[in-house]
Design a protein around this nucleic acid. Structure first.
Lengths: 95, 95
DNA sequence: TTATCATATGATAAGATTATCATATATATA
DNA sequence: TATATATATGATAATCTTATCATATGATAA
């Protein structure tokens, strides 16, 4: 196991902005503009954070007209759901 | 899904010290002293970080003689392995 | 090809996280 | 109970991350 990229992976989603983006993309793919509107975050913040998610293998992107459409990698959903299940079971924190 | 604890979960393993501790505990349970020896990290660093991992539901602990024995929660291994598989497949970063 | 909309990027100040040190608390045994 | 060993905790300086601003680049349509 490559410890460093392991760490990168978790850094990628250990942040409010990127958590919110991932949550949105779990519903459906979206452009930067759409993500900005739905999240309320400003554009450069979203772009910077999408780049991080892309580099870490969470999402990929393709052009669709003027927009760049970002999608979650297919198995990410199931990984995130497994983690969620675990959290519900073992979490000790109220927040 | 609780976004906040989701974030906490990932913060927990997005750090070199805690990654290393988890890696050790994936092999077998261990006391603070053992983790210190194997990792080379000093004691208070290990204790502080184990506490974080405990709060976030990665590990639990029980007393065994003078020592406190830390173990990884059982399904963590399988979650971590699924993530590892994903990383190998999609990672774009060399580090 | 230029005007417009969409997205990306570099620099940086503000904020968050970390390791360390000093010390406190817990457990076991003599 | 006193001592030794093991672990936990609080404070803080150093380090790392983040959001933001200003601006650059990319894509499309007129």
């Amino acid at each position: 196991m490559n410890e460093l990229s392991y760490k990168m992976f978790f850094k990628a989603i250990s942040n409010k902005t990127r958590c919110a983006i991932i949550k949105l993309l779990m519903k459906r793919p979206g452009s930067v503009t759409e993500i900005c509107q739905k999240s309320g975050f400003e554009q450069s913040r979203v772009s910077h954070n999408l780049k991080c998610l892309e580099l870490c293998g969470f999402v990929n992107a393709r052009y669709k007209g003027k927009n760049r459409l970002y999608s979650l990698h297919p198995e990410m959903s199931s990984i995130l759901k497994a983690i969620d299940k675990h959290l519900v079971k073992y979490r000790r924190l109220s927040a």
